[in-house]
Design a protein around this nucleic acid. Sequence first.
RNA 1: GCGCUCGUAGCUCAACGGAUAGAGCAUCUGACUUCGGAUCAGAGGGUUGGGGGUUCGAAUCCCUCCGAGCGCGCCA
Length: 536
Amino acid sequence: MSSKQTFSELISKITSDLGWSDFGPKIKIERPSRREHGDFSSNVAMVLSKSLGKPPREVAQIVVDEINKLGMEHLDRAEIAGPGFVNVHLNTSWLQDVLQEVVLAGQSTWATDDLGQGEKVQIEFVSANPTGPIHVGNGWWAAYGDSLARILSRCGWKVSKEYYVNDTGGQIRRLGESLIARKMGEIPSEDGYQGAYVTELANHYQGPMEISEAGRFAAEKILDGIKDTLRRIGVEFDSWYSQASIEEGGAVQETIDTLRASGLVYDQEGAVWLASSTLGDNRDRVLVKSNGDVTYTGGDLAYHRDKFLIRGFERVIDIFGADHHGQVATLKAGVKALEIDPDKLEIKLGQMISLVGGAMSKRSGNFVSLDSLLDDIGPDAMRLMSLINSIDQATVLDIDLVKKTTSENPVYYVQYAHARISSINRKADSQGIERISLDEVDFSLLTHDGELELLRILEEFPDILREAANERVPFKITTWVRKLAGQFHSFYHDFKVISPDLDPQLVQARLYLVEATRIGLGVGLDLLGVGAPEEM
RNA sequence: GCGCUCGUAGCUCAACGGAUAGAGCAUCUGACUUCGGAUCAGAGGGUUGGGGGUUCGAAUCCCUCCGAGCGCGCCA
């Protein structure tokens, strides 16, 4: 059990022993941001002060007395601070436990969790229309979705990653028209696709001068390109789900039949409508047009029914660009109509990525492709940069600046820390230094704050991971990795690991300290999908 | 007009209802004859968009105003 849990349970025991109220959610255990406030802190006294009719500091005194009476492993002292915080200071021996735990568990099992309890979750992301290469914004949300999948997997969810391929409808027709136009040496119409890639495709097109055939050809080729691009940043999908297969397989009709039976569908002016306004949407939506075509909404609803009711996902996370947030209420209303708990459908909206030079538009062909950015800065830098901030934050990207600051990009900072550790290990090997077994190392030799701080940071990680999983916020992993790397660089500057001038016992302890750090960086970088190089 | 998201240092962004609002970049000043200087140490920089409210305590929750992005199709 971690020291944090030990402390948490101690506080819980004290409050129940004293017959105070339940250990409710308002009572929290925190890691104070200031060292002088101890290793762990609780607000228990302030929360209970009112119901007990005593001032917070007086309540805190009672708790502190109880802690001193009951004791706690590694406890140095408990004290009251500020408005009534109960702070505990631990002996550094608790950090020695942390070190051994990390090394013993190793990269594959340290900081794993069963938070998800095997829940089957599908994460759908990117799903960009196959009408052109994916752009930088798609790449950012792809990195988010993929990293979230890695995080949830590590925390005990059964994750499946899916890309919904929008291979039907008017846009594919327009794509076909544009290709034919280029083939005939003409310029595509204004609402067609004008990008150079269409001309490129036209040069390779051998099929008949027929719109649907040309559209299918182009979409297929473009999708192949999208797959290649995503592979460059390490994003692999478990399934590519075709919208055409939904529409052709009768799923839409089944969905409509079900809804009609519950009275949530009606016919008007030759079209089939969903009464979504009764379910939280701001208007009703057409599912089937009067010409018999299925609308996007109709297909999307059948698709989500398929996810939950046919394929049996217990939870679905859709990641959309913020420009699609108009779909949220409709989709929520739709699943509700199908008697699926709308809370099981989570829709994360990635805020827009805009460019200093102007907006990104596929139709005009005036946009920065993810490929070109990758050519400039490489996949690791791209992934880390996209995972630095919350996706709730709209981002303005200055491509020129990104290229220019490549050498001072945060990715190198973190990877360099990992490479330096690998370098230390190589040196130890080349000098023939044998590692003694873990239980024979005297970790009490690690006494400097620069050493212990590494362990304090490592100790936080399991909680950070849970938070990243629960709140769907991969960027917290990024923040943590950067913090650990920063502390390592500082340590590296101040302390030698291998030196004939050092006590061989201390060398052993530091080699393990550095190994624990390497494991931490390795786990964090892996969750972000960023490489952990041994040399740079 | 209605809805969603957001507004924090010069810039890009953190902050689980908690203690003196923190990082990176940029700026300025410094640092190894050593395991990789793609590094380290320090400094300056804030009325958390404005105004009310809730409470022991608000950047955070509620109301209102201001500002920004996006959406409001029988497009996808």
